[in-house]
Amino acid sequence: MHLLDAPEPVIPYHPDLAPEGLPPESRQLLAAAVKSWVFGGMGSWNDIAFSDTARGAEYDQRTDDLYRSVLAALIAVTRGPQSVKV
């Protein structure tokens, strides 16, 4: 089961980010965003380099898209349930 579909999603890292009473849709989005955070640390997503310029450019674009998406999800959760669209 995917975190965005889970009836009671478990936030895999830093579960204390979710206050008591956080609506299910917000918990789902927060759990998925936390699980999607792959930036930083040894062996992380952005430790990869490509000698092929085209592949490197595509990787950089996808990295930027992923980073912005995860941040947007975290921001949506902090703004409240009216901004969460799962």
Rank of each mutant, 00 (worst) to 15 (best):
L4I: 07
L4E: 02
D5S: 15
D5C: 12
A6L: 03
P7S: 14
P7Q: 13
P9N: 11
V10D: 14
V10I: 10
I11K: 05
I11C: 12
I11G: 05
I11M: 08
P12G: 14
Y13I: 14
Y13A: 13
H14C: 09
H14G: 12
H14M: 10
H14K: 13
H14S: 12
P15G: 12
D16C: 10
D16I: 09
L17W: 13
A18N: 11
A18F: 06
A18E: 03
P19W: 04
P19K: 07
E20H: 04
E20W: 02
E20N: 02
G21L: 06
P23L: 06
P23C: 03
P24S: 05
P24F: 02
S26G: 11
R27W: 02
R27P: 01
R27F: 06
Q28V: 12
Q28I: 04
L30A: 04
A31I: 07
A31P: 07
A31L: 06
A32D: 13
A32R: 03
A32E: 09
A32V: 00
A33V: 00
K35F: 09
K35H: 10
K35T: 05
S36D: 15
W37D: 11
W37L: 12
W37A: 12
W37P: 00
W37H: 05
V38Q: 08
F39I: 03
G40P: 02
G40W: 06
M42T: 07
G43L: 08
G43D: 11
S44H: 03
W45H: 15
W45F: 14
W45Q: 02
N46Q: 10
N46V: 01
D47W: 09
I48Q: 09
I48E: 09
I48C: 08
I48T: 10
A49W: 10
F50R: 07
F50W: 11
F50D: 07
S51T: 07
S51A: 10
S51Y: 06
D52G: 09
D52P: 03
T53C: 05
T53A: 15
T53N: 08
T53K: 13
A54L: 13
A54N: 14
A54G: 11
A54I: 11
A54P: 03
R55Q: 12
R55A: 10
G56T: 09
G56S: 15
G56I: 03
A57E: 15
A57L: 15
E58D: 15
R62W: 15
R62D: 12
T63H: 01
D64K: 07
D65E: 15
D65V: 15
L66C: 03
Y67F: 09
Y67M: 03
S69M: 04
S69A: 07
V70R: 00
V70Q: 00
V70C: 00
V70I: 08
L71V: 07
L71H: 05
A72H: 06
A72Y: 03
A72N: 05
A72P: 00
A73V: 00
A73Y: 00
L74Y: 01
I75K: 05
V77K: 01
V77N: 01
T78E: 11
R79W: 04
G80F: 04
G80E: 03
P81E: 10
P81H: 12
P81V: 07
Q82W: 02
S83K: 04
V84W: 01
V84H: 02
K85N: 11
K85P: 00
K85S: 09
K85T: 08
